[in-house]
Amino acid sequence: MFSERERERYKRQMMLFGNEGQERLKKAHIFIAGAGGLGSPVSLYLAVAGIGTLTVVDRDVVDQSNLNRQILHNDNDIGRKKTESAEEKLRAINPDITIRVIDATIEEKNAEKLVGKADGIVDAMDNYPARYILNDIAIRKKIPLFHGAICGFYGQATTVIPGETACFACIFQKAPPKEVFPVVGVTPGIIGVIQATEVLKYLLKSGELLTNRLFIWDGMQAHAEEIRMERDPRCAACGSLFENYGDKQ
């Protein structure tokens, strides 16, 4: 059931997916790993779309050098916990949803508990070790993982449905080296909004998900491309989910 204010708030998108679609969004709980460059657009757009519960996890405090891209935060937030800043902004942008924030580092030992009963995980991290942990949790809980990553004007995104599609570790078998990456805010803006779009499509059960495909964005060329990806039957992360299927895939 929606309040009068919610009906008015979501009027234009309910033209697209109706009362039923909006109910699906309202009942959903999405876990957003990171409140930085990708986490900012992801959480803002999922909040305004009316996802019922958002959990946002981050361990950092806001730094001046974050502000060229992390649009959840502003100059007044410098020195504050990103989770505290995120909670305030997201509550303000949509008071009709539940925002949960957790000030924590995502690690193997706590990740399962942090994700809890969420219906999906958005990867808004900036390193591969954390992404492999999120991928493992997504597989264990059989919930989707919405991956995004950026560097400079380049970005990539893919969606993982455990047990059905290539997982993050099938696609990225080895992590690239850690580096201080150059970035301009528009790139996580584009990739984050693609991730948020994937979340909506998944919850609405409509459209074609970005599964078994790696979306690649080149902002300098204004060119998007996709590379077909396949499940790796030897994948240490998701291989066991497919054992019953033999080598049919």
Partner: peptide, 10 residues
Amino acid sequence: IAIFPPVAGG
């Protein structure tokens, strides 16, 4: 032939 380096930032 296509050659691609994964990106890592977020």
